[in-house]
Design a protein around this nucleic acid. Structure first.
Lengths: 200, 200
DNA sequence: GATTATTTATGACTAAAAGTCATTGACTTT
DNA sequence: AAAGTCAATGACTTTTAGTCATAAATAATC
């Protein structure tokens, strides 16, 4: 990699880090582009070299941690379905908790308005979550953990909506309750009862 | 009511109707205040007599249909819990479907960011949903439909998060799937299994 | 019914922030 | 070393939210 590309990558990183830092303090709407660039130590115009619109910096940072979860789960061959999903929920909420409630809000906004996301990277798209979960369930069907006639697609929707519901409630509470505790309780009650009739 | 109050009420209604009409076509961010006032046939400044901020027109129209559901359910004395909740889910999604996916998006945004809602009317607040549902469950405990040691608060959270999850998924799909069908399927699988262990 | 007070409506104006673009200078390529 | 490319800049344009002095209509008071 030459000096230019290095420097470009560095500037992008600085911008994202600056945005994340500011998001810990206040919500995205209350942050303006000039603040971000000032925090990053670059000029305002530089922002628009890397991001078409102000909001794009969110989907850019976005969801690469979630991709890690995907890889992690794919490598868990000997673990049963319920445990896998427990793990998934836990890690998901971990990814949500770390950057904080304001960025979680922006994620939800980008989920509910997929048209409004202009992101080149596939990892930023939420269909990713869907496909990944579906794959886990399909594998479970093949491994005889789930009945052959399990409505995989519907179940996937159901579980995803659990995640979104959880995120939404967390934001609603202003990040008050412990997302990880919550995720555990949630799984305990929810996952087991959702899957009960399909488990072999 | 005198002429003045009549006219004021009329103007407010016109503004809300105009906003709703525009929201059928495009999302809230893409609509500016001048468009709304033009559609309503008033001057821009008039908007700010009725609403402090642009977003307030959403929470104003907001959630009065949901209050109707509350009343409806309170009057259903002879109906069992599961059916009540089925009804609740169904009516909830009906209230969400009618004004369309864009307004649903704005509702979710106001749910996830409660600090950012400046609404005088209590009916616009989402704690309302929570309290209402909790009451239904508490009644069920008193009527011996649910076990005495049912964790009512936790269950309420759980059910609310189902609703939010459902709304979020609906917006995510861009309003593609039939929310009412979905609500039925959802209830069928979810509610029964959530409540199973607590039902007497 | 004339005068004063109050309320609604107006649209030009201000303020703030998003987004643009011609210019500069550092690095790369030939 | 000359030509070409690309990142960075910040003054500038554009957009839009929100304000406010003014006017006009209605209500209250005498």
């Amino acid at each position: 990699m030459n000096k230019r590309k290095q420097s470009a990558q560095n500037t992008r990183k600085k911008l994202i880090q600056a945005a994340l830092k500011l998001l810990k303090e206040k919500e995205f709407n209350a942050i303006n582009v000039e603040e971000i660039t000032k925090e990053a130590g670059v000029a305002k115009g530089t922002f628009y070299i890397y991001f078409k619109r102000k909001e794009d910096i969110i989907s850019e940072y976005s969801r690469y941690p979630f991709k890690e979860i995907a890889d992690e789960l794919k490598n868990m061959k000997e673990v049963n379905l319920i445990e896998k999903l427990n793990r998934y929920f836990y890690r998901f909420m971990e990814c949500v908790e770390t950057p904080g409630v304001n960025i979680c809000r922006e994620w939800i906004k980008s989920v509910i308005d997929p048209n409004n996301v202009q992101n080149s990277q596939d990892s930023g798209k939420w269909e990713y979550d869907f496909e990944m979960l579906k794959e886990i369930l399909e594998n479970a069907v093949q491994n005889n953990e789930l009945k052959k006639d399990t409505p995989v697609e519907l179940l996937t929707h159901l579980i995803i909506s659990q995640l979104y519901g959880m995120m939404t409630c967390w934001c609603m509470s202003n990040g008050k309750f412990e997302p990880l505790d919550w995720s555990n309780k949630f799984c305990e009650i929810q996952l087991n009862s959702i899957l009960k009739e399909f488990l072999i």
